[in-house]
Simulated assay, not measured.
Amino acid sequence: MRAQTLITTLALSAVIVAGGAALAPVMAQSNIAGNTQAPWLSVHEVQLKVEAMGYRDLSELERDHDKYEIKAVDAQGRLVKIDVDPFTGDVLKTKVKRDKAGDTDTHQATWLTLHQAQVKVEASGYSQLVEIERERDGYEMEATDAQGQRVKIDVDPFSGDVINTKVLRSF
C-alpha cells in the first residue's frame, strides 16, 4: 500500500510539473502581450484628430505623462484646454478658459497655423515634437534636432523658420 501511494504521489507530481512546464511559455507570452501598449499618436496625428472634431487655432500642444494637453478654440469660439487620449485621440476633458468671440488680433491672424509651423519645422530636420506653444511673438517648440539632442526652438510665426535653438539638459 505504501508503495502504491508513493507511486501515485510521484506520478501526480510528474503530471503537475509537466503541466507547469507546458503552460509556462504560454503564460509568459500572455504576460508579455498584456504589458505592451499601443504606441502614442504623434503630435501631427493628434492635431488632425482634434481639428476634425471642430477645434481650431491650436495655440499649445503638449505631451504630458498620460495625455496630450491642447489649448484651442472650440466651435463656439471659446478658448478651451482639452486633454486628449494619447492612443485614440479622443477628448477626455474640456475646460473653458475664456470666450474669444470678442477678441481680434489682426497681427496673429496672418501667422502660419500651428500645423503649418510644425510641418515647416519637421521639413527642416527636427523630429519627435512633444510640445508646441503659440507665444506672443511666435511659436516655441520642443523637439529632437538632427544630432539627436532634445532642443527648445523658437519659430518665426510667418515663415516657419527656426530663429533660435537651445539644447535642453538631459538627466
Rank of each mutant, 00 (worst) to 15 (best):
108 Q>T: 02
82 I>T: 02
165 T>H: 13
77 G>I: 03
8 T>K: 11
48 L>V: 13
152 K>G: 04
66 D>E: 14
90 D>R: 12
111 W>M: 02
2 R>N: 13
138 G>V: 07
77 G>W: 13
4 Q>H: 06
52 A>R: 10
74 D>N: 14
122 E>R: 06
138 G>N: 11
124 S>E: 00
150 R>E: 14
139 Y>K: 09
144 T>V: 15
99 D>G: 05
25 P>H: 11
111 W>K: 01
155 V>F: 09
40 W>F: 06
98 R>F: 14
34 G>E: 08
27 M>K: 07
92 L>M: 13
168 L>A: 07
105 D>T: 05
6 L>A: 12
70 I>N: 09
107 H>P: 00
153 I>R: 07
65 H>K: 08
111 W>C: 03
155 V>C: 07
171 F>M: 12
32 I>L: 13
12 L>P: 00
82 I>E: 12
125 G>E: 10
73 V>G: 02
95 K>P: 06
151 V>Y: 14
110 T>G: 12
166 K>T: 15
103 D>G: 01
89 G>I: 10
154 D>K: 14
63 R>K: 05
131 E>M: 15
38 A>M: 11
111 W>T: 06
143 A>W: 08
20 G>I: 08
72 A>P: 06
2 R>M: 09
43 V>F: 14
147 Q>A: 06
119 V>E: 09
122 E>Y: 09
16 I>K: 01
93 K>P: 03
85 D>A: 11
64 D>P: 00
101 A>C: 00
139 Y>I: 07
55 Y>K: 04
28 A>P: 05
140 E>F: 05
126 Y>K: 09
32 I>S: 13
63 R>D: 00
135 E>T: 03
58 L>H: 08
136 R>Y: 13
22 A>F: 13
60 E>M: 02
91 V>P: 04
162 V>L: 10
84 V>D: 05
18 A>Y: 01
162 V>Y: 12
168 L>N: 04
110 T>S: 11
49 K>I: 10
167 V>P: 02
39 P>V: 02
167 V>N: 03
87 F>C: 00
1 M>H: 12
79 L>G: 10
25 P>S: 03
159 S>G: 08
48 L>P: 09
19 G>D: 06
115 H>A: 15
118 Q>E: 15
37 Q>Y: 09
78 R>C: 03
127 S>C: 04
36 T>N: 10
61 L>M: 06
61 L>Q: 02
30 S>C: 01
25 P>Y: 10
15 V>H: 03
69 E>N: 08
36 T>W: 05
82 I>V: 14
108 Q>Y: 01
14 A>E: 01
66 D>C: 11
169 R>L: 14
6 L>N: 09
84 V>E: 04
55 Y>C: 10
85 D>H: 08
24 A>D: 05
27 M>P: 04
108 Q>E: 12
38 A>E: 12
62 E>F: 05
149 Q>L: 15
118 Q>W: 06
49 K>W: 07
71 K>Q: 06
